[in-house]
Design a protein around this nucleic acid. Structure first.
Length: 153
DNA sequence: TAGGCCATCTGGTCCT
DNA sequence: AGGACCAGATGGCCTA
């Protein structure tokens, strides 16, 4: 058992070494931005206020004005969107704010899961924080490695 | 300065 | 009807 443990340790060290040499360039990243200010990021567009939840306008060339981070942005959904014409769901500013808060919470929990996964995959202590895509790829390789290890012992 | 990564907003779609 | 999920867009930060 102890021998096998040492073997796993050695194999793991080699595995991490290989992964770090091959896959990951050196780059340091700072922590996540903390910008949770609903008053700044909330659109205040009276056009969106409507009693009915759905409108029947076509999606061909719906040009939407967006107020994000205090500055207006424009983009046309007609350039890349779906060909099907759909009824558009019109929501109030309050509903949009609530949806934004839910989305932030959802992304927060997603990042928590990524952090948990980062702690499970082996890296060197001095290694930079893995990005999300790096974490996923390393986890895939790590699982494959451990699976092979189990099958060959 | 370009490119990578991330946070956030947003609208569409699916599901309860 | 409304929440969850998803993908596109955008801007900020950081590094090479």
């Amino acid at each position: 058992m102890e021998v096998q443990g040492r073997f796993v340790d050695t194999a793991l060290t080699n595995f991490v070494s290989d992964m770090n040499l091959v896959e990951f360039p050196q780059r340091f990243t700072s922590g996540p931005k903390q910008q949770v200010d609903d008053t700044l990021s909330t659109p205040n567009n009276p056009k969106e206020l409507d009693d009915s939840s759905w409108s029947c306008e076509l999606e061909d060339d719906v040009r939407t004005e967006r107020l994000v981070m205090g500055s207006p942005r424009f983009y046309s959904r007609g350039t890349y969107g779906h060909t099907k014409s759909k009824r558009r769901r019109i929501i109030t500013v309050v509903q949009r704010q609530a949806a934004n808060v839910r989305e932030r919470k959802r992304m927060f929990s997603l990042n928590e899961a990524f952090d948990e996964l980062r702690r499970k995959v082996p890296t060197f202590a001095y290694e930079k924080r893995l990005s999300r895509i790096e974490t996923l790829r390393l986890a895939i390789v790590y699982i494959s490695f451990m699976t092979d290890l189990l099958e060959n012992t």
